[in-house]
């Protein structure tokens, strides 16, 4: 992994190229606005992507399918609790984090107690989370408190506030994964769970922590997405299931586990937003846009694994 070309630089290079191609078409006056939009929307993908990355690093079969449902549940319940009143912001955020912890614990309990594959466990749990959200929401649209609405759409030092939050989260994850005992254990389990267990790694503890982490990140993303878009909606998490997996893989983490990559998540999240806005500004319809997005994902994966085989 040494040398000038880091594995995550590809995602950033792709994002840069897409940005340049879009600006070339729309003109320079749209460039700063596009950058702000990219940073804002990438933030949500980064938050869920970081959690999904930790889960995928656990090794084959580990993937969290409950992310959209947890986002929706945390968004609806926390907004309902705050009810748009001032002075309740901290409680709302705490409630969202608590919902994340609860959902993560439920996911992990199913995996541990029923010994079912995490895909099925998080899938069945997500059905129940979704039901809870539907029941608590009933089509109401509660506005977030003004302070939160202004904060989540505002910017500090020229960068959107949400991007600061996602950047901070990425920094925390980088320390956690690259510098802490937890990160070493996580990678060890992903590379060979049996060897890790024999070496004395507390495998179940690390797995539990990872599923909790993923659900908390999803809840955080759901909370901010609900504040940003002026209310929670029942399908607000839908596109983030595919997105969370896509940013992990495009960002250079190994889908087979054992090797994660925090900076790449940011590059991939910006790229995924930019590719859609580029195709939009070239005036392509929804169908062509979807086809090209899919083709790009496959091309990147094919190219990336070709590099690995050559190395």
């Amino acid at each position: 992994m040494s040398g000038l070309v880091r594995p995550w630089s590809w995602a950033f290079a792709a994002a840069g190229l897409t940005y340049a191609a879009t600006v070339a078409l729309t003109g320079v006056q749209g460039a700063p606005g596009l950058l702000v939009a990219t940073l804002t929307f990438a933030s949500f993908s980064v938050l869920v992507g970081l959690g999904q990355m930790a889960v995928i690093t656990l090794g084959p079969g580990n993937v969290d399918l409950s992310i959209p449902a947890v986002m929706t549940l945390a968004g609806t319940l926390s907004l309902k609790l705050m009810d748009g009143a001032a002075g309740t912001e901290a409680w709302g955020l705490l409630a969202a984090l608590g919902i994340g912890l609860g959902a993560g614990a439920a996911n992990y309990a199913l995996i541990l107690l029923l010994r079912i594959p995490p895909i099925i466990a998080t899938l069945s749990a997500s059905f129940m989370f979704q039901s809870l959200a539907v029941w608590s929401n009933r089509g109401l649209r509660i506005k977030p408190p003004d302070t939160l609405a202004t904060f989540s759409t505002g910017a500090t030092l020229g960068m959107p506030n949400l991007a600061w939050i996602a950047l901070l989260a990425a920094a925390v994850f980088w320390v956690l994964i690259e510098r802490s005992a937890y990160g070493r254990r996580l990678s060890a389990i992903g590379q060979n769970a049996r060897a890790a267990r024999l070496a004395g790694v507390p495998v179940e503890g690390v797995r539990a922590a990872t599923y909790l982490l993923s659900a908390v990140m999803a809840a955080l993303a759901g909370f901010w997405l609900a504040c940003f878009s002026g209310g929670a909606a029942l399908n607000m998490g839908a596109e983030y299931l595919l997105m969370s997996i896509a940013v992990v893989v495009i960002g250079g983490s190994s889908i087979a586990g054992g090797n994660s990559n925090v900076p790449g998540i940011w590059g991939a999240a910006m790229f995924m937003f930019l590719i859609v806005s580029m195709l939009n500004s070239y005036g392509l319809g929804a169908g062509v846009r979807l086809i090209l997005t899919g083709a790009v994902i496959i091309a990147i994966v094919a190219a990336a694994s070709g590099r690995r085989a050559a190395a």
Binding site: L242, A286, G294, A295, I298
Partner: peptide
């Protein structure tokens, strides 16, 4: 998992067309 994820976008796009 990733290739079929990418293909899911492609099939969805073709269906919309």
């Amino acid at each position: 998992i990733v290739v079929t994820l990418g293909m899911s976008f492609v099939w969805a796009g073709l269906a919309v067309l």
